[in-house]
Nucleic acid binder design. Structure first.
Lengths: 136, 136
DNA sequence: TTGTATATTGCAACGATGTTGCAAAAACAA
DNA sequence: TTGTTTTTGCAACATCGTTGCAATATACAA
């Protein structure tokens, strides 16, 4: 079990109060979190500091963006293999249309795709929506 | 060939100047367009009216959202089968990481996916990024 | 432990954007 | 053409992304 402090150090991020708190939120929730979600969990935090915290985490390969059709930006923890110079988040995201909870699905491989020759494929972003276990 | 005026009527949208202009933009470009893109093509248009135009088009099944990881909301023309009560935009989106142009790929079927039983899949959103013909 | 170099925070400030209300103008149907 | 309904353009407000800057906190070497 790696502590949030150790995880920050491993990504060369200075440990500060808010960074530990935000990282712990991600570790505890295992869900993609929007800025609003985080603000609810951590009231009285400066919104600009939170903005910069998430930006730092993203730059350093600690979290990645999760996009959805409602255009609310969420973030989720990266796999351990991500770093500041390489993101490696090849997995499906699932968003429940009812409760809006969004999770990373790690154990289903991304499908192989063959596009017409004129396209050079570099990355796939696959978001599946539907009902989660609790809402079905 | 269906005119933009006819297309608006078919979706029960009143034909006004800005609506015809915006719809023509989509018909001519065959690209997904952001609000900023449209404002460049149509300067001196009231931004609120444009906002409501896009909202109306989306509600009535004329355009659909195209999401990408940079979190810039774009819209693209729907297939003819979309209407105000049913969107049917099952296709891949391709975004060029260089020129940022985003297109709908109509002739490649969406892959079949099998998720763990606890998920009820309703919709797939697949965005492929890479290099387009011109940027390769 | 203490001092210092470096990074982070919190605040002000600004622009961009989403959204609603409302009166004037435009589109539609008879 | 006339009356009804919708749309537009503007004001207004909230929210959010972003940057600069001074005060504060962290990391590390001595």
């Amino acid at each position: 079990m790696v502590s949030s402090t150790q995880q920050l150090s491993a990504h060369k991020i200075r440990t500060t109060e808010i960074r530990i708190a935000v990282l712990n939120l991600f570790l505890e929730n295992k869900q993609a979190l929007s800025k609003q979600d985080i603000e609810q969990f951590l009231p009285n935090q400066d919104r600009i500091t939170l903005y910069r915290t998430l930006k730092t985490f993203e730059d350093k390969g600690l979290i990645h963006r999760v996009i959805n059709s409602s255009n609310i930006l969420k973030y989720a923890l990266c796999s351990d293999s991500c770093s500041h110079d390489y993101h490696n988040d090849q997995h499906i995201h699932f968003e429940c249309t009812n409760c809006r909870q969004t999770t990373c699905i790690e154990n289903v491989p991304l499908p192989k795709l063959t596009l017409p020759k004129e396209y050079l494929v570099q990355n796939l972003e696959l978001t599946v929506s539907g009902l989660c276990k609790d809402c079905k």
